[in-house]
């Protein structure tokens, strides 16, 4: 694939005896929404963790923007342009919503102790930029009305959106969403999917983990299906939907019967 923004090459990830990912290969094209689906425990989150540097793959490699990510620290990977959300919400609970997003925006900032102590011009400019960007993103996500509230006091739906705003604030090229609509009602889910489409329309590439197959069908351009740590299908939503292996995986039919 010529214009892959990220490619996962023969990645295997083992935890002791458990093989969470086994020889996984897939690529994300610039500007697409790629769905990563699979039953519980298929290895989707592990895949995110390998991409974002939380785990070092047992073998294989991840290439982003034509450069290998191996050896980079997690915050360096974020600065390269990969941002993520978490399946189990992990906001900074005692910080306000806007501050949470500003932490993300700070990924693009350089002020350190010296600049802050002296009140440097850059410090002031970056604070202003951070605030503006944070409010812009909160507004975009439709949660600006609670900007001044502690993240812990926000309703669940707001927290999920806040995680996306925070990730976007880091200025990513690739946005990785781990079940962003988990726990939502169907209507809320639909709303979120519309939002994800809007995000893509602004030029972001999106990697979307979602449990709900029907939902993924609506928004994604392509889908990668994981089952027991292996890629069992890749293709357009329609192709994947009709793939017997996928149906078997989702219905829990044993391999030999499929």
């Amino acid at each position: 694939m010529a214009d892959a923004i990220l490619s996962v090459n023969n990645v295997t990830m083992q935890f002791g005896g458990v093989t969470a990912l086994s020889d996984v290969n897939f690529a994300i094209e610039r500007g697409e929404i790629l769905g990563l689906i699979g039953p519980n425990g298929a290895g989707k989150t592990t895949c995110f963790n390998v991409i974002t540097g939380v785990y070092a793959a047992t073998s294989g490699s991840v290439t982003f923007d034509n450069q290998p990510l191996a050896g980079l620290k997690r915050f360096q990977i974020t600065k390269r342009g990969i941002a993520r959300t978490f399946q189990n919400i992990r906001l900074f609970p005692d910080m306000t919503a806007v501050e949470n997003v500003m932490v993300g925006a700070d990924a693009n900032h350089k002020t350190s102790v010296g600049g802050a102590l002296l009140g440097s011009r850059r410090h002031h400019r970056e604070e202003r930029e951070g605030r503006d960007r944070a409010m812009e993103l909160l507004t975009f996500m439709g949660i600006a009305d609670r900007a001044a509230d502690a993240a812990r006091n926000l309703p669940y739906g707001y927290q999920r959106r806040l995680e996306i705003a925070r990730a976007l604030a880091t200025g990513p090229k690739l946005l990785c969403l781990d079940e962003p609509a988990a726990g939502f009602t169907p209507a809320e889910k639909q709303e979120l999917m519309d939002l994800i489409r809007k995000i893509r329309a602004q030029g972001y590439t999106v990697l979307l983990i979602e449990h709900d197959m029907s939902l993924v069908m609506g928004v994604t351009d392509r889908i990668v299906v994981l089952d027991f740590g292996k890629v069992i299908a890749t293709g357009s939503p329609a192709d994947v939907q009709n793939n017997p292996d996928v149906i078997a995986a989702y219905l829990g039919v044993p391999d030999d019967a499929a």
Binding site: F75, F92, P93, V103, T111, A116
Partner: peptide, 20 residues
Amino acid sequence: RVGRAWNAVREDEDAAELMG
């Protein structure tokens, strides 16, 4: 930015690192 970074580390160090 420094104070925010400290707070973020205290609240959730892993998440902070992953947010850059």
